[in-house]
């Protein structure tokens, strides 16, 4: 039977759809239905917290306090938005986040791009060493306190933007992704430019970078989202409210609502619940707006890294 189907060419194309219909046993068909239902459940569970957040942001305090808000807003109002947007500190902190993200991404990109390009050159002497010192930091580090002493006491970066944007500048994962990208860059182009008398700088800025826009965009998004979402370094090194990014503003809001006073009663949590929801919503807004691009670029970035991680 098997030899029969493979003996003539037309039969092979005929056997394919037939084979797949035969192999769809009842068991497998049941599995596929269950599988689809479970995946639908995954979607619902993933989305629910966001929908709940949205509903709370537009609900009145009373309904939230009564535990009656889940999927749709109850006691619809936009006053909470007016309250949050009416706080000048929210605007100052939001602007700080934007500034930190722009400056931090620029620094990180400058360091990562030049570093990755240099260690991607196969004839560079000391290439293994320069790669190794970066990779080693992935698995061993100085720890919280030596870092703190360095940034706060030695470099005196406390209460400056630098404490937020500099210490986390190079991500080794991003570095390796870029390195493997540059390694696969067509050598002929660089060689031709070199023969035309271009220096390394000329080749890098005028040939390599303009042709690497995709990977540069991916890495920029990686860093920008990372800094936008970060909070701990700011929390650790900044004392002045005027310098906080919006994530720390939000953290303090949440801590005040569910902090030491929380055990006294449920009231303290609920007073802030709608305010918290609105602030969270406004904090993720740019990321949700950019999400279609983010997802595409991030996925390709991760895949790129997996080629040679």
């Amino acid at each position: 039977m098997v030899t029969d189907t493979f003996s003539t060419t037309p039969d092979i194309s005929a056997v394919r759809p037939q084979a797949s219909t035969i192999k769809d046993t009842t068991g497998y068909r049941v599995f596929r239905v269950v599988n689809a239902i479970v995946l639908l459940g995954v979607c619902v569970v993933t989305l629910y917290p966001f929908i709940n957040l949205f509903a709370k942001a537009f609900s009145s305090e009373g309904y939230i306090a009564a535990g009656e808000v889940n999927l749709v807003p109850r006691g619809f109002n936009v006053e909470t938005f007016q309250v949050v947007l009416g706080d000048p500190m929210f605007w100052i902190n939001y602007r700080n986040t934007v500034v930190y993200t722009l400056v931090g991404t620029a620094i990180a990109m400058a360091l990562t791009t030049t570093y990755a390009y240099a260690i991607s050159r196969r004839n560079l002497k000391g290439r293994t060493f320069f790669t190794g010192i970066a990779v080693f930091t992935m698995f061993f580090g100085g720890g919280l306190i030596p870092n703190y002493i360095l940034v706060a006491n030695v470099l005196g970066m406390r209460n400056t933007i630098w404490a937020v944007v500099v210490p986390s500048a190079i991500s080794v994962f991003n570095l390796l992704v870029m390195k493997s990208f540059f390694e696969n860059f067509p050598q002929e182009l660089e060689e031709a430019a070199a023969i035309d008398g271009m220096s390394t700088y000329g080749i890098f800025f005028r040939i390599v970078l303009p042709l690497s826009k995709a990977v540069l965009a991916t890495m920029t998004l990686f860093y920008a989202v990372g800094i936008w979402n970060s909070w701990f370094n700011s929390f650790l090194y900044l004392d002045e409210k005027e310098l906080f990014p919006v994530t720390v503003y939000l953290r303090n809001l949440i801590a005040a609502a569910s902090g030491p006073g929380a055990e006294a009663g449920a009231d303290t949590i609920q007073i802030g619940a709608n305010i918290q929801s609105v602030t969270m919503l406004l904090t993720v807004l740019p990321i949700v707006c950019l999400y279609p691009f983010l997802q595409k670029y991030f996925v390709s970035g991760v895949m790129l890294g997996s080629v040679k991680g």
């Binding site: 580090g141 720890g143 870092n147 360095l150 190079i170």
Partner: peptide, 20 residues
């Protein structure tokens, strides 16, 4: 190209390691 990144690693990654 390596000067700034390596300086960065030395100061912000290896100095704290010594700080241990």
């Amino acid at each position: 190209f390596l000067v700034l990144p390596v300086l960065f690693l030395l100061i912000f990654r290896y100095l704290p390691m010594l700080g241990n």
